[in-house]
């Protein structure tokens, strides 16, 4: 059903492409129909697990066992409400929002400042610092999480939101600095020089010239930082034991081990955390796709 909904939305949004009229024009269209059919089959195969998840959330255990492919006999969102409440999903989502929001803001601000520094100034140690950040692009999580966890434990940072915000920010910075520097490098020097001659301070130049110019770059960085923070699992598993501070991935795991035998409820919880992401994606798909492509290819 989500497929249909999204289909229609996009079709109506692109009526000017005149796709439907084109369909009756030339004899080549049989190949076209086959081609479209092939795409539909592939899409359905890809989408099916998610449809199955949503259907199953409305079923009882025995219905899930007996008729796995059948449509649910009734759509009762009571299970979703129940899953939301007993599963503390609201709490987990709030935690995810806070942690992701704080990390993304910190990445944007610190990353933009560092990129500004690298792009506009030459100074002692510049290459060293850039090299270290570039190394950060390659370093796997495994190279630091062991010592990080003992450090965080000793500093009593574990079981606070900082335990996630700090590493998420640090992990997001290298790519953010790199990308934002590329954007800033493309800005003509004269823009900054003019402001400098007008007597603007460096901070002022950063704030009122660099940041606004960086807006598309910041959006890109925000998107992939947000996605990776939102979905991060390993550190969240290691650093947060307090149920009240868990984010969606670890919270959902806790939920799934607590209600493992109530499949309908579990599918409800999975659906609850999945659907908003799909909606967000459908609404912002252009920005998200651009952000992710830029983030990985550049």
């Amino acid at each position: 059903m989500s497929i249909d909904a999204s289909n229609k939305q996009f079709d109506s949004a692109r009526t000017h492409t005149a796709k439907h009229h084109a369909g009756r024009r030339t004899p080549l269209r049989i190949a076209d129909v086959l081609f479209t059919a092939a795409l539909i089959v592939i899409a359905v195969v890809f989408f099916f697990p998610m449809l199955w998840m949503v259907f199953s959330s409305f079923k009882t255990n025995s219905a899930i066992f007996a008729t796995p492919f059948a449509l649910p006999t009734e759509i009762d969102f009571g299970r979703w409400v129940e899953a939301f409440e007993v599963g503390h999903i609201g709490q987990y989502a709030l935690n995810s929002v806070i942690v992701t929001g704080a990390s993304v803001l910190a990445i944007l601000l610190l990353g933009a400042a560092a990129a500004f520094s690298f792009s506009r100034y030459r100074f002692r140690g510049r290459n060293l610092f850039m090299g270290l950040l570039a190394l950060g692009l390659l370093l796997p999580l495994q190279s630091y999480f062991i010592a990080q966890s003992t450090m965080f434990t000793q500093l009593a940072i574990t079981d606070t939101r900082w335990a996630l915000i700090i590493p998420y920010t640090a992990m997001g910075l290298p790519l953010a600095v790199y990308l934002l520097k590329v954007y800033l490098d493309a800005v003509p020097d004269e823009l900054f020089e003019a402001a400098r001659i007008d007597g603007a301070s460096d901070l002022r130049i950063f704030g009122s010239i660099a940041l606004p110019l960086l807006r598309p770059g910041l959006a890109t960085v925000a998107i992939f930082s947000a996605l990776s923070s939102w979905n991060e699992f390993l550190l969240a598993l290691l650093y947060i034991q307090d149920d009240a501070l868990k984010t969606i991935p670890t919270g959902l795991l806790a939920f799934s081990s607590r209600y493992v035998t109530d499949y309908g409820l579990l599918f409800s919880a999975l659906s609850i955390v999945t659907l908003p992401m799909i909606v967000i994606y459908i609404v912002f798909n252009k920005q998200i796709v651009e952000g992710i492509t830029a983030g990985s290819v550049k």
């Binding site: 899409a43 890809f46 989408f47 939102w230 979905n231 699992f233 991935p249 992401m277 799909i278 998200i288």
Partner: peptide, 11 residues
């Protein structure tokens, strides 16, 4: 449709 799974938490 094909991209949607990328959005979901791996868990």
């Amino acid at each position: 449709a094909i991209f949607t799974p990328v959005m979901l938490p791996m868990v």
